[in-house]
């Protein structure tokens, strides 16, 4: 099998693509997807470590991350829909009232 490092590098790459998505995209939906990508990248690292150490705890952690992600998406999309109802836009930059 491949070295653990390769898997970790892949995980980091996906994670950083997710970060770039959060930082550069204006569409709130895409930002959510970028967040999901980051979560998946973290999951990959968990699975890799679980495999490397031969322990199941990493896989259990992934299981919990998935449930949290599901909950987050449900609430997050609901918020997004509500915002869209009032502002008719999914542009995250249009929400900047909270400032100094």
């Amino acid at each position: 099998m491949v070295s653990t490092n390769y898997v970790l590098i892949l995980s980091a790459t996906l994670f950083i693509i997710g970060v770039a998505g959060v930082l550069t995209r204006r569409n709130a939906l895409v930002i959510y997807m970028a967040v999901e990508l980051m979560l998946n990248a973290a999951n990959l690292a968990f699975v890799a470590f679980a495999s490397a150490f031969g322990a199941l705890d990493g896989q259990i952690a992934v299981f919990f991350v998935m449930t949290v992600a599901a909950a987050e998406v449900a609430v997050g999309l609901a918020i997004l829909v509500t915002i869209f109802h009032t502002r008719q836009s999914v542009d995250i930059d249009s929400l900047h009232q909270l400032k100094g």
Partner: peptide, 17 residues
């Protein structure tokens, strides 16, 4: 310091990053 608080979420995310 208040100028740092732009109100743009992506800005804040950049700061964290």
């Amino acid at each position: 310091v208040a100028r740092w608080q732009t109100g743009y979420v992506r800005n804040y995310a950049l700061s964290i990053f």
